[in-house]
Amino acid sequence: MGLESNLNTDGGGFMVTTVDSVVNWARKSSLWPMPFGTACCAIEMMATYASRYDLARFGAERMSFSPRQADLLLIGGRVPIKMMPVLQKIYEQMSEPKWVISIGACASSGGLFDTYSMIQGVDQFIPVDVYVPGCPPRPENFIDAFMKIQKLVENDSVKNYKKPKNNSFNKLWQTN
């Protein structure tokens, strides 16, 4: 059964697939999240990573604290006006392809803090793929959002990232 049944006795054999499925399979099973946790949701995020819920089961235990090596941005917690430029800088530094989860009411909509210093939803200024409701969301919610992102990655296509907009770096490598 499974892949192993296609193997010969000497370990040879081959299989046919598409580049998209292989790349997406690899991407979705080893997402490197960049935890941008500011407040309460970061504690629940920590709980998801810790002993009981263990996000390592989804291939995402390697937290990448450097945005340049991350492909999933987890925005957990309130984002005030002083933090927003930092968040945008981090989003900019992440390389394509990248996905964003907005965890909790505050990051998604401002939550109960409708005040002068709070951003009313980070999706006004950076694109968000999956929203997690709750204040703060339970780890189960968070895992559900994570699986949604995996589905999104699975349906993605390599073609989408062929010619990124406004990327002068790409031009250097074009031969013809």
Binding site: T38, A39, R78, P80, K82, M83, V86, L112, S117
Partner: peptide, 11 residues
């Protein structure tokens, strides 16, 4: 500091 100032006292 101030990266998480959310106006608690005003609210």
């Amino acid at each position: 500091i101030g990266f998480l100032h959310c106006g608690f006292e005003k609210l």
